[in-house]
Amino acid sequence: MASMKLRAAALLSIAALSLTACGSNTDTAADDNAQDAKTVTFTDNDGEKSVQVPAKSVVATDNRTFETLDEWGIKLSAGAVSLMPDTISYTKDKDILDLGSHKEPNLESVVTVDPDLIINGQRYTQHADKFKELAPNATVVSLDPRDGEPFNTELERQVTTLGEIFEKQDEAKKLVDDFEAAQKRVTDAYNTEDTVMGLIASGGELGYSAPSTGRTVGPMFDFLNLTPALEIEDSSTDHEGDDVSVEAIAKSNPDWIIVMDRDAAVAADGADYKPAKDLLENSEALQNVTASKEGHVVVMPADTYTNEGIQTYTEFLNEFADALEAAK
């Protein structure tokens, strides 16, 4: 009888030790997970913010950030997939919830992915407050280029901050270094006596992209110190450019023409699509301007209008530098 009691006590002791060991392992795993998670503090357009990394559910709506997040392998739970060019791999990922275009967004559906991080901006900028209401526990990040700040350094700030948030500082630095190197190539090769015209091709027409304020092309006049061939009053940031006659463009006789082909990004599959290069070559009024005669027309990458991030500008600047260097 005593022997049986001793056996039972021994078995209970072994079971207790096993449970203690299991509990210890579980606690250790929990402690490890707690140690893996950490908080990153950064500054965006609204001020200082914090987010726990790695984020569990990431939403992205800012076109300027899509290529960067894609390159870095950041998994999205939701995003403005409808606004992404097909050069971004997210467009082929059926697991990403599409929030739709900025004009008819499906904002309420964001609650289904329970985001803790929303990279918001550009076409979705006006929806920031709604996101804060729908996902109160999420950190909503805004990194749009700020008015009054140099556009080139704002692009660098954006990618550098994203590098902090996603712990991709080295990758962010590489993007900034490549961008600055491309800028230097242009400024080293460009003769400030040569005049430049910025244009936007949209709807089969050519619009004027004003220095500084014009969509996409305009900011480059500032950070590349380009000499405008034409300056008009009351210019705008319109995505189709300002209405300026081809005769006025021809009269300004630019040495170089930079074109953003909006339709290449949003209407290239349409039967009425006319590439920017064709519009320029088929315009009688522009046949005799210096830029056309010398072949000094540089068209930005086809997906520029929906992919205006630092990589797009770097690609274009290198192509512009190639043309400038070849013209010497």
Rank of each mutant, 00 (worst) to 15 (best):
A229H: 03
D278P: 08
V217H: 00
I74Q: 05
K130S: 02
S18F: 01
D194L: 09
L224S: 10
A128S: 07
R64Q: 12
E167W: 05
A16I: 05
M84F: 00
S109M: 04
E193T: 15
E71S: 14
F179E: 08
N152K: 11
T161M: 11
E231F: 03
D116H: 03
G79R: 01
E247P: 01
L76R: 07
R64W: 07
A128H: 13
N33M: 12
G198A: 04
E48Q: 15
G198M: 02
D62G: 00
T43K: 14
V266M: 12
L12H: 06
A80Y: 02
G309D: 06
T192P: 13
L230D: 01
L199E: 10
N152V: 07
S235N: 07
K49S: 08
F320I: 06
K38M: 11
G47H: 02
L6S: 13
P228I: 00
R262D: 02
D170H: 05
G47W: 01
D242Q: 07
T192C: 08
P105Y: 11
G207C: 07
G270E: 15
G241I: 03
T61P: 08
D188P: 15
R123L: 15
E319N: 15
D27Y: 05
E308T: 14
S18P: 00
Q158P: 02
S212D: 13
G198D: 08
D303N: 11
A264F: 03
T312Y: 03
V259W: 01
Q169R: 13
A30Q: 12
S245N: 09
G309I: 01
F223R: 06
R262Y: 00
N191C: 07
D62N: 10
T68E: 14
D234W: 00
D116M: 03
F316Y: 11
T227S: 11
A30W: 00
A135R: 08
K274N: 12
V110E: 12
L11S: 13
K49C: 03
T306I: 12
E171H: 05
T213N: 11
A8P: 08
T39N: 06
L317Y: 06
N33I: 10
G241H: 04
T28W: 04
S142M: 10
L19S: 12
E67W: 02
K38G: 07
Q126C: 04
L280H: 07
D129Y: 09
I310W: 10
E247W: 10
P145A: 01
G203K: 02
F223T: 08
E104S: 10
R146D: 11
M84I: 11
M84A: 06
T139H: 03
V299L: 04
T26Y: 13
A55W: 05
